[in-house]
Amino acid sequence: MEGSVAAGAAEEWAELTLSPRQYRQRARRYRARTSRRAIGFLAPYTAIWAVFLAFPVGWGVWLSFNTGGILGTRQFVGFENWTRAWGDTEIRTAVRNTAVYMVIAIAVVFGLAIFLASLLNKHRRGSNFFKLALYFPLLAPPILGAMMWFFMVHFDFGVLNLILRQFGGAGINYLGENPNALLTIVAVEVWRGLGFWVLFYLAGIQAVPEELLAAGRIDGAKAWRRFARITVPTLRPLLLFALVVAIIFNAQLFDSVQVLTEGGPALGTATVVWFIFKRMFAFQDTGLAFATSVGLLLVILAATLLSFWALAKRQAREA
């Protein structure tokens, strides 16, 4: 009857027309047909990615177990490259330099950036101008940025020494002595990255809910306590993310070394990437270059995991 038909009523029109097998078959064909549409969208990127990123990563790992230069015949040698790399004093120096550089550079640039960001947050008049000016060094390619610094730190005609000498000083050898050279590189990299991190932290600080800060003010919290107790904790997730990004970026230090010191003096500014580059393209010692490349990959991966783990632990403790 027209009146009320409840679920699953055994009416003739409600009989299935396909057997379960037919149904499955046609469903499969239908899904295959719709899936095929993705191919055209995926193919261009996936092809480039597979050939020029995924494959090289895999090949690099494989080649780290082989000898033979760029042109020579390759031969599987097991862990020979790895043991060689482990004992290589040059690599050890490069790793140490890179580590020292990273610790100092990240500490300095983060400290300065958070400080300047909080200044900009409090004193908003003209903050647009300051932001732009601080951001400026990022515009120049690292190579050119480092070149500008040549004119600042060159022993003979660098602006810094010219000023020193005008006040009767002797002039400092910024690039030709250790550890000056590495510290100069740190300064140049801090100079370049500062604007980015200022903007980054400024955005973070300004994302702190205004009511929280206002509540702090009414409670009579001093500005510094307010910063330490309210602003910094809310920045924490940002801080970790920033740290990971900074580690990954800074572990690749190469451009300014190539321009300013070429790894010298006496390997005082030799970095991991600089070492890879030299071994690969100057000495054609590909085995060592590949082993070091894979090592760098692993270290970056480990750094990322480690800092995420640290955050999770700290959050668990606070909860």
Partner: peptide, 17 residues
Amino acid sequence: TLMIPVAAVLAPTYLTV
């Protein structure tokens, strides 16, 4: 592969090309 730096795959990419 988001975090893989250019430098770490420079050599194998060079050989690939």
